[in-house]
Simulated scan of single mutants.
Amino acid sequence: MKLENAVRVFAGFMVLLSIALTYWVSPHFVWLTAFVGFNLIQSAFTGICPAASVLKKLGFQP
C-alpha cells in the first residue's frame, strides 16, 4: 500500500473510531473528530502531515 493511501485509511479509521467513542463512551470524543479534520485541512495547505511521517517510518513507501 502506498503512503498516500495509508494516510487516507488512517484518517478514515480515526474518524469512524471517534464517532463510535462519541456515541458509546463520551460526547467529548467529538473533539477527536475535529482534530483529525483540522489536521487534514492544515496538511492540504502546508504539505506537512504528522501521520504520513509516522507511517513512512513504519515502512510505507511514497
Rank of each mutant, 00 (worst) to 15 (best):
G12V: 01
I41Y: 11
G59T: 04
S18L: 04
Q61Y: 01
T33V: 05
P62F: 02
N5L: 11
F10H: 07
C49S: 15
P27C: 01
V30D: 03
L16V: 09
V54Q: 01
K56Q: 13
A20F: 09
P62R: 09
H28L: 14
I19E: 04
T33I: 10
L21Y: 08
F10K: 03
L21R: 13
F45Y: 14
W24Q: 07
S18Y: 13
A6V: 04
L3Q: 14
L58D: 02
S43K: 07
F60T: 03
P27G: 15
L40Y: 12
S53Y: 03
P27I: 12
S18K: 04
W31R: 05
I48S: 09
K2I: 07
A52H: 06
A11T: 05
I48Y: 13
Y23T: 13
P62S: 11
H28F: 14
L32K: 00
A52Q: 14
P27H: 07
M1L: 08
A6G: 04
S26M: 01
Q42I: 15
L3G: 13
F45R: 11
V15S: 07
Y23M: 12
A6D: 07
V36A: 06
Y23D: 05
R8D: 14
C49T: 10
N39M: 15
G12M: 05
G47Q: 12
P27M: 07
S53I: 10
C49H: 12
M14H: 11
V9L: 14
E4P: 07
G47N: 11
M14I: 02
I41C: 08
H28C: 00
T46M: 06
V25E: 09
A20C: 08
W24V: 12
N5G: 09
Y23W: 13
P62I: 01
V25Q: 05
V36C: 04
W31H: 10
A11R: 03
T33P: 00
V30G: 00
K2A: 11
V36Y: 03
L3W: 14
L55R: 00
L3C: 13
L58K: 09
N39L: 15
I19Y: 02
V7K: 00
V30N: 07
P27V: 10
N39D: 04
V30F: 15
F45L: 15
F10S: 11
L55Y: 12
A52G: 03
M1T: 07
V9I: 14
A11C: 13
I41H: 01
A34Q: 08
S53R: 07
P62T: 05
I48T: 10
A51P: 02
F29K: 01
G59Q: 06
N5Q: 15
P50D: 03
K57C: 04
M14G: 05
L40G: 13
S26R: 08
R8S: 14
M14F: 11
A44L: 12
V25Y: 06
V36K: 01
T33C: 05
F35I: 01
C49Y: 11
I41E: 00
A51K: 02
A6I: 04
T22R: 08
L32T: 06
G12A: 10
W31S: 06
W24M: 05
F38E: 02
R8W: 09
E4Y: 11
V7P: 00
Q42N: 08
L58F: 14
V7F: 03
F29P: 03
I19Q: 00
A20Y: 10
L21S: 08
L55C: 04
T22D: 03
M1C: 02
F60P: 05
F10Y: 12
K2L: 06
